[in-house]
Design a protein around this nucleic acid. Sequence first.
DNA 1: AGTGCTGGTCTCCTTTTGAGACCACCACAG
DNA 2: CTGTGGTGGTCTCAAAAGGAGACCAGCACT
Lengths: 135, 135
Amino acid sequence: MDGKIVNLKSKLEIYKAMTAGANFADCPVRDVMRGINGKWSPLLVMALAEKPYRFGELRRLVPDISQRMLTQTLLELQRDGYVHRKVFPTKPPSVEYSLTDLGRSMFHPLYQLVQWAELNHEAVRDARTAFDAQA
Amino acid sequence: MDGKIVNLKSKLEIYKAMTAGANFADCPVRDVMRGINGKWSPLLVMALAEKPYRFGELRRLVPDISQRMLTQTLLELQRDGYVHRKVFPTKPPSVEYSLTDLGRSMFHPLYQLVQWAELNHEAVRDARTAFDAQA
DNA sequence: AGTGCTGGTCTCCTTTTGAGACCACCACAG
DNA sequence: CTGTGGTGGTCTCAAAAGGAGACCAGCACT
């Protein structure tokens, strides 16, 4: 469990940061990235960046997520401080999820990546087709 | 397998793109994100952004990756067109991996996210501690 | 009494990931 | 001419993550 990325002041330091021996928990960047990298996390952050949503709304918004993974992913996002969970004492009680300041701040670079993906998905798809044809 | 993100011209369209019913293969953004999101992909892209590396060098650079996952991740990165694999006819043959233009272009937004993680890992760690204490 | 909506948890099975043994090839040292 | 080590892998098996769907309590409305 090595490979540390931390204190990246310049591209040249990536090497040093990655080669610095330390266990996984001691590599904050990879630790944080792991939280962002989940299968559903980016999707939910993108959704909540738009506006707060309730549990059931999110489920309908992302129909191919299982209820179990929605619960679990939202819990992880709360734990990492990206999402706030607010319970309204209605009957039946409803729960609203919203982005925290930290979540909104993380949204910006994430959104850059998503935009890149949107602009370049065709190139990636072409690369795959070419690779599969040649292989 | 729904939840489509495509043609994101504005934040307001995130909702529409996500709710547009379509299966996973038809959502280019999530498809591309899946390739970037792998456990090791970002790490290897960061490494190769520095300079080309050989297989064994990468293995030593990231000591906690298994040889199997290194092979597999590099293959996926090749397939998606981020990485170029060049075989040198030495004895024994050596293989050099380098970023393609597409890979370098993808590196920029990825690097933004990594920088964010580096700057905010403490806030995330604090959020986790607070969450775990209260729960 | 039945139906539906709220936000979940629990169980089971499949897919993905990880650890480590194994492989062929060749150079060089003894 | 036999180790020993370095090249870049593949194969097998166990562990972890992810997905499908049943189940739950509570209340409103019919």
